[in-house]
C-alpha cells in the first residue's frame, strides 16, 4: 500500500506537458476527485524513455537518479509516474542503484555538486494507486460506462521485465478490474501485451504500421468501441498509425474513461481518431 498524506508526488516526463497533455489533464482531475491530488515535483529530468541495459552503462542512469534525488530533496519517498516508459526506466534504474551499492557510490561521486542519493525513493505507476483505491473509485462513478466495449492494451513497459511488473506479466488484470468498476464491458484479448512498435515510429514507421494493424484488427474482431491504455507512445502509435488501417478505433487513456464515468470531461482533445462518436452516450 502506497501512502502519502495530501496527495502524491508526480513525475511528468518529457511528453506529458505537450503531446500527452490529455493524459496529464485527465489523471490530475481523477486524482483530485479521489482526494489524492498529484503534486508535480519542483524539478525533474527526462528519464531517457528506454532503459539502458549494458552492465557498464552508468551514464544513462544519471537522469533517473537525478529525478530520484529531486524527490529525496523534497522529503518524499514515493514517486508516481503516469507514463509507462518513465515508470519502467525510473523503476529499473532505481532498482539497479539499490542493488548495486558500488554503482550508487560511483554515481554519487559523479554528482558531486548535489547531495548523495540514498536509494530510499520508491517509484509507482498511477495504476498501482488505483488498485489501492477501488472502493473510492466505485463511489465516484456517476455515469457508468454501460454498454461500452473496451479492449485493454498494456503494451510492454508496465509488465516487463518481471522485476518491475505491476501485475501478472502474461495475464494482467489491473486495467480490467478498474474498468469493471466503471461499468464498462471489458474484453481481454491476447494482443494486449504485445509491443506496439515503440520508438520505431521515428524511423521505421512501416514496422509500427504492421504491429498496429495486428493489434487493432484483433480489437475490431472482438467488438471494441475503444481501446484503453496508459502509455503515451502506445497511444500515439495505435492512434496515428491507424491512418493506413481500415479500422478507426479510438485509443483512450484509461483516466479519460475514468473521468467520464465520474461525470467529468477531461482530455479528449489531441486524439487523431475522434473518440466523441464512440463516447456520445456518456458525454454531456
Amino acid at each position: 500500500m502506497i501512502q502519502m498524506e495530501d496527495g502524491y508526488l508526480y513525475y511528468p516526463g518529457c511528453t506529458l506537458k505537450t503531446k500527452a497533455s490529455d493524459y496529464e489533464e485527465s489523471s490530475k482531475k481523477v486524482m483530485e476527485a479521489l482526494g489524492k491530488p498529484l503534486v508535480e515535483m519542483d524539478n525533474w529530468y527526462c528519464c531517457g524513455a528506454v532503459q539502458s541495459l549494458a552492465t557498464d552503462d552508468i551514464m544513462h542512469q544519471i537522469a533517473a537518479v537525478r529525478t530520484m534525488l529531486c524527490a529525496q530533496e523534497q522529503g518524499e519517498r514515493e514517486l508516481v509516474t503516469l507514463c509507462d516508459m518513465c515508470y519502467n526506466v525510473l523503476k529499473q534504474a532505481n532498482k539497479r542503484m539499490k542493488e548495486k551499492p558500488d554503482e550508487l557510490e560511483t554515481m554519487n561521486e559523479f554528482l558531486d555538486e548535489d547531495p548523495d542519493y540514498e536509494g530510499q525513493v520508491e517509484v509507482h505507476h498511477i495504476f498501482e494507486l488505483f488498485r489501492d483505491m477501488k472502493d473510492e473509485i466505485k463511489k465516484l462513478v456517476k455515469k457508468p460506462l454501460d454498454g461500452l466495449n473496451v479492449v485493454t492494451y498494456y503494451g510492454c513497459m508496465l509488465l516487463r521485465p518481471n522485476h518491475v511488473s505491476i501485475d501478472n506479466t502474461e495475464d494482467p488484470m489491473i486495467m480490467e478490474d478498474i474498468l469493471e468498476l466503471l461499468g464498462a464491458n471489458t474484453i481481454v484479448n491476447p494482443k494486449r501485451t504485445e509491443c506496439c512498435g515503440s520508438y520505431h515510429t521515428v524511423n521505421r514507421g512501416d514496422i509500427v504500421e504492421n504491429r498496429v494493424e495486428e493489434i487493432v484488427a484483433r480489437a475490431a474482431e472482438d467488438g471494441a468501441d475503444v481501446i484503453a491504455l496508459s502509455c503515451p507512445l502506445c497511444q500515439f502509435n495505435l492512434d496515428y498509425h491507424q491512418r493506413v488501417s481500415d479500422h478507426k478505433i479510438p485509443v483512450l487513456y484509461l483516466t479519460e474513461l475514468m473521468a467520464l464515468s465520474f461525470g467529468m470531461e477531461a482530455g479528449l482533445k489531441k486524439h487523431k481518431i475522434n473518440p466523441r462518436g464512440a463516447l456520445k452516450d456518456f458525454l454531456e
Binding site: T15, H60, T201, G205, P232, F236, Y240
Partner: peptide, 20 residues
C-alpha cells in the same frame, strides 16, 4: 534526415536516439 519530429511524441525520439 528526420522530417516527422513535429508530429512525434518526445519519448519516441528520446527512445530511438538512446537505442540507435
Amino acid at each position: 534526415g528526420l522530417d516527422n519530429i513535429e508530429e512525434l511524441p518526445q519519448l519516441a525520439v528520446v527512445g530511438c536516439f538512446r537505442k540507435e
